[in-house]
Amino acid sequence: METRIDEIGPGIYRLSTYVADIAPPAGFTFNQFLLLGDEPLLFHTGLRRMFPGIHAAMARVMDPARLRWITFGHVEADECGAMNEWLRVAPQAQVAHGRTGCFVSLNDLADRAPRPLADGETIDLGNGKRVSYLDTPHVPHGWEAGLFFEESSGTLLCGDLFTQLGNGSTLTDGDIVGPAIAAEDMFRSSSLNPNMGATIRRLADLQPQRLALMHGPSFEGDAAAALMALAADYDQRLKAA
């Protein structure tokens, strides 16, 4: 499993590992996102067994020991499995997550105490970058789920939203909603709940310029429209259920 690293926006890097034997024949990608600044931030840690490759990829851009913030969408192995490995190689790093995630899991799981974030709270990364934390409970799954929005570039770090199969391009302006619907039909991984559509529409209200997908290509285009279409699909699924 080789991890590649590509810049998808100013000082925003996508670290991507393709695994062919997950959901063959298409396979599956696992992506992390590195935001450079005075206090660099990593969104998603990757699985523990992927850590050596991801660490080596990051080292091509910056010294991993400089990492300051470790973040992710929810508590799941591919999102935070290597959390403590990163804490060990980056002495100043701290996990930052929503209050629910910290209280329920991370106060115990993390080798150093995490920083709990309130909905809407921001972290200033320096060099013009600021990320705001957004509570998204049960969207797409996990009571403690939450996302991050980088304000200066308009980049929404989407976690498992828009999950799709395959190993496509790094960045696309094509359809990401259709492939996400197909993946949901296959995996049934989302936690359907009455607030799902409203939660995703709240993300659309941010008018993001870029969507950084954990499983799939990053997207530049009418991101708000893509989010609204995804919300509508979940509305239909909930109605049918």
Score class of each variant (00 low, 15 high):
residue 2 E to R: 12
residue 5 I to T: 03
residue 6 D to C: 02
residue 6 D to S: 06
residue 8 I to A: 05
residue 9 G to M: 00
residue 10 P to V: 03
residue 13 Y to R: 03
residue 15 L to E: 01
residue 17 T to V: 14
residue 17 T to F: 08
residue 17 T to R: 14
residue 19 V to S: 06
residue 20 A to P: 08
residue 22 I to Y: 12
residue 24 P to S: 07
residue 25 P to W: 08
residue 26 A to M: 13
residue 29 T to A: 07
residue 31 N to F: 02
residue 31 N to P: 06
residue 33 F to S: 08
residue 33 F to M: 13
residue 38 D to V: 05
residue 41 L to E: 00
residue 42 L to V: 03
residue 43 F to Q: 09
residue 46 G to Q: 06
residue 47 L to Y: 15
residue 47 L to G: 04
residue 48 R to Y: 09
residue 51 F to R: 05
residue 52 P to T: 04
residue 52 P to I: 05
residue 52 P to R: 02
residue 53 G to M: 03
residue 59 A to D: 10
residue 61 V to D: 06
residue 62 M to I: 14
residue 65 A to Y: 01
residue 65 A to S: 15
residue 67 L to A: 07
residue 68 R to A: 15
residue 68 R to C: 07
residue 69 W to P: 03
residue 69 W to F: 10
residue 70 I to Q: 08
residue 72 F to L: 07
residue 75 V to C: 13
residue 76 E to S: 14
residue 79 E to Y: 08
residue 79 E to C: 12
residue 80 C to P: 01
residue 81 G to K: 10
residue 82 A to C: 04
residue 86 W to M: 02
residue 88 R to G: 10
residue 95 V to K: 02
residue 98 G to P: 15
residue 98 G to S: 12
residue 98 G to E: 14
residue 100 T to S: 07
residue 102 C to A: 15
residue 102 C to Y: 05
residue 103 F to V: 09
residue 104 V to H: 11
residue 104 V to R: 13
residue 108 D to I: 05
residue 108 D to T: 14
residue 109 L to Q: 15
residue 110 A to Q: 14
residue 110 A to T: 10
residue 113 A to D: 08
residue 114 P to D: 06
residue 116 P to E: 07
residue 120 G to V: 05
residue 120 G to N: 01
residue 121 E to I: 03
residue 121 E to C: 04
residue 122 T to R: 12
residue 125 L to M: 02
residue 126 G to D: 04
residue 131 V to Q: 00
residue 131 V to Y: 00
residue 134 L to Y: 09
residue 135 D to A: 15
residue 135 D to F: 10
residue 138 H to G: 00
residue 138 H to W: 13
residue 140 P to N: 07
residue 142 G to T: 02
residue 143 W to Y: 08
residue 144 E to V: 05
residue 145 A to I: 02
residue 146 G to Y: 00
residue 148 F to H: 15
residue 148 F to V: 11
residue 149 F to M: 12
residue 152 S to I: 11
residue 155 T to N: 05
residue 159 G to V: 09
residue 159 G to F: 04
residue 161 L to V: 09
residue 162 F to N: 11
residue 169 S to W: 00
residue 170 T to K: 02
residue 172 T to E: 05
residue 175 D to R: 11
residue 177 V to K: 09
residue 177 V to R: 02
residue 177 V to H: 02
residue 178 G to E: 12
residue 179 P to R: 00
residue 179 P to L: 01
residue 185 D to R: 15
residue 187 F to Q: 13
residue 192 L to Y: 11
residue 192 L to N: 05
residue 196 M to D: 09
residue 196 M to Y: 14
residue 199 T to H: 08
residue 200 I to E: 03
residue 203 L to D: 10
residue 204 A to E: 11
residue 204 A to M: 11
residue 208 P to L: 06
residue 208 P to T: 10
residue 211 L to N: 02
residue 212 A to F: 00
residue 214 M to R: 10
residue 214 M to L: 04
residue 218 S to D: 10
residue 219 F to N: 04
residue 223 A to P: 09
residue 224 A to F: 01
residue 224 A to W: 01
residue 227 L to Q: 03
residue 228 M to G: 00
residue 229 A to Y: 01
residue 234 Y to S: 01
residue 241 A to S: 14
residue 241 A to D: 10
